[in-house]
Amino acid sequence: MSRPKTLRKVVAPPNFKGYRPYGTNVEPTDSIELLYEEYEAIKLADYDLMNHLEASKLMGISRPTFARIYETARRKIAKAFVETIEIKTVYGDALLEKHWYVCEECQTRFTIPKTIEEHECPLCKSERIELLNT
């Protein structure tokens, strides 16, 4: 049995379920699965312009592991572009950072799970809430 994978910390999962090519004559048949940690790697390295060592520390993994995830992410995106196939985002071995909010009106702390759409305080219904980063 292989060694279990260290869970990769992901600060925020992608805000989309996937990407689909348009303006193509080829009917998209296949799709590629981009893992949350791969999305996070692309975001940290190419959007936040971090170096791999900093980024790996943030995700709680070693630098070589980060480099591997980053590489598979790039290759998957390249494959999707060239073969005009759909990209779907899937969970992978990610550990989502919990998000705690604090209400500025009544100082209540709370989480907002994925199933709840309103961004408001569950007690006083105030919309003046702030993200706590602990």
């Binding site: 100082q107 702390r109 709370f110 989480t111 907002i112 799970p113 994925k114 199933t115 007690l123």
Partner: peptide
């Protein structure tokens, strides 16, 4: 967190269950 249950932390010491329910009803 795994089962998507919202957690709310109230830090007031002297509060009754009734008072919290009133807030929820509002």
């Amino acid at each position: 967190d795994k089962f998507n249950v919202q957690m709310v932390i109230v830090q007031d010491n002297d509060v009754t269950v009734q008072e919290i329910i009133e807030k929820l009803k509002a």
